[in-house]
């Protein structure tokens, strides 16, 4: 249980920052019996630095006034200080603790890069959707009586809504653009996600031995001058970047192409199987001058990529 922003920071620090983890409230008793609405939103989708955080918040359909009292409104219009205040109230005030539950999943930058660089690539949309789905399930499994779900989306809402409706046939599901400015429960989810991301960046510890705080690497958005400077300056010739960076972002990819040692992985097609090197058209017209001269190697060696070579050449 987390009772203050300081405790939230301390909790984040106990988790390793290259894997995903969950931070959550207790389920309020009333949410186990009363029908509840649940909001889903994310923070930190675009930045090249730091985790993406998915947040959900839920409360009884009959108790939405609590959300208004907390000040849950369009979270983008709230200042960082306002958001911190609202989460503090959610962590401490009786009326909120008794009615509003929440869960956040911190999705590490390393997990994001790894997903996007798998043999069969996972898009950020898939990562996002999977997180949203698992959080809704988690709330229900921990005892919350969910009946309505409101989801903020960046992409087209129709497909996403159909998919969620298929997974959760018993819930009334609404997927909408800018849902956090329309539905206070989504706004609450958004605040949980945003504040968690901000604090995850504040307590980020580099295993790479960098002594640098978030005031030096900035917001993480590629347009932020401090973030730009970080991406330009903090390059390791072999390993590229510290794990704070999402390697799969084009900002990072392009900079490494330019400034770090070239690295080539095996090429794969979209399904994830190894590409055979394409034979060039001209090779079909070329006379095979080696005919009869070179001894053909047994396929044992070809299959094992064994050749006779001299490393001292």
């Amino acid at each position: 249980m987390v009772n203050s922003l300081q405790e939230l920071q301390d909790f984040i620090k106990t988790k390793n920052n290259y894997s995903n983890f969950i931070s959550s409230s207790e389920v309020p008793e009333v949410c186990k019996s009363e029908p509840c609405m649940l909001g889903v939103d994310e923070a930190g989708r675009g930045p090249v630095l730091g985790p993406m955080v998915y947040g959900i918040a839920y409360c009884p359909v009959s108790e939405t006034k609590v959300l208004q009292d907390l000040g849950c409104a369009d979270s983008k219009a709230l200042t960082e200080e306002k958001r911190d205040n609202i989460l503090t109230k959610m962590l401490t005030e009786e009326s909120s603790l008794n009615n509003v539950g929440w869960i956040a999943e911190v999705i590490s930058p390393n997990y994001i890069s790894n997903s996007m660089y798998r043999r069969a690539k996972h898009s950020l949309n898939e990562v996002s959707m999977n997180s949203a789905i698992s959080l809704i399930k988690r709330a229900a499994e921990s005892g919350a009586n969910i009946t309505e779900v409101y989801v903020d989306t960046v992409g087209p809402p129709e497909k996403y809504q159909a998919k969620l409706q298929e997974i959760f046939p018993d819930y009334k599901i609404t997927v909408a653009k800018k849902a956090d400015s329309i539905y206070p429960i989504v706004s609450a989810a958004s605040i949980v996600a945003k504040v968690t991301r901000d604090h995850a960046l504040k307590v980020w510890q580099f295993h790479e031995g960098l002594e640098m705080s978030h005031t030096e690497f900035g917001s993480g958005y590629p347009g932020d001058p401090l973030t730009k400077k970080f991406i330009r300056d903090q390059i390791d010739n072999v390993f590229g970047y510290p794990m704070l960076v999402r390697f799969s972002w084009s900002t990072a990819e392009l900079m490494l192409q330019e400034k770090a040692a070239a690295c080539t992985f095996e090429e794969v097609d979209d399904q994830g199987s190894t590409k055979k090197p394409a034979k060039s058209i001209s090779s079909f017209f070329k006379q095979n001058s080696d005919d009869g001269k070179a001894r053909k190697r047994h396929k044992f060696f070809d299959e094992r990529y064994l050749t006779v070579s001299n490393p001292f050449e």
């Binding site: 790479e208 072999v238 390993f239 794990m243």
Partner: peptide, 21 residues
């Protein structure tokens, strides 16, 4: 599993080994 066009010392203990699980 990657061809790295570099020959020399590398910060393996700081950039790679902390993340081996």
């Amino acid at each position: 599993p990657c061809k790295i066009e570099e020959d020399g010392p590398a910060n393996v203990d700081k950039y790679f080994e902390p993340y081996v699980l």
